[in-house]
């Protein structure tokens, strides 16, 4: 990842969103984040890593490097990919307890994107986050 330190990545996101008042600028920025998301290796795109949202296809894989968690994500929807990029930037590079303890809902609230994380939206993002937490939680139990 370009951001080795997830805390500074979160600070950068918060700051960037702070400058964007118009919703179109915010959505454009989210799509740009998606475009900047490192390509997910095709071998990681399996039935196991696919999240079933009704509207778009989302993949998320969790790998570890020692104690450090890495996330890999992709979506065929540019907006969902951008939202996934926010999740990746916020969590990638943390250790297991750092991922499990991170207040993602709080961040999405702060960025005024909480509606997209809601289970009532069928964009797959909620499912993606649930899967990340489940997998990282499983690592924690090993």
């Amino acid at each position: 990842m370009t951001h080795s330190d997830p805390d500074s990545a979160v600070a950068d996101l918060t700051e960037a969103f702070g400058f964007l008042d118009a919703w179109e600028d915010r959505y454009r920025y989210i799509m740009d984040l998606g475009e900047a998301l490192p390509a997910m290796d095709d071998t990681l795109k399996t039935a196991h890593t696919q999240v079933h949202g009704c509207q778009s296809v989302v993949w998320v894989a969790v790998t570890t490097e020692g104690q450090i968690v890495h996330l890999h994500a992709d979506s065929d929807s540019q907006l969902v990919k951008g939202l996934a990029a926010i999740v990746v930037r916020s969590l990638d590079g943390r250790n297991v307890s750092g991922v499990l303890g991170f207040d993602l809902a709080g961040l999405f609230d702060q960025l005024d994107l909480h509606a997209h994380l809601s289970p009532t939206r069928s964009n797959g993002l909620h499912g993606m986050v649930s899967q990340v937490m489940l997998r990282v939680g499983a690592i924690a139990k090993v």
Binding site: Y27, Q55, V80
Partner: peptide
Amino acid sequence: GMHHADCGMLLDR
């Protein structure tokens, strides 16, 4: 060039 879900979310906005 635009995913249908993206178009729907943007129209919703």
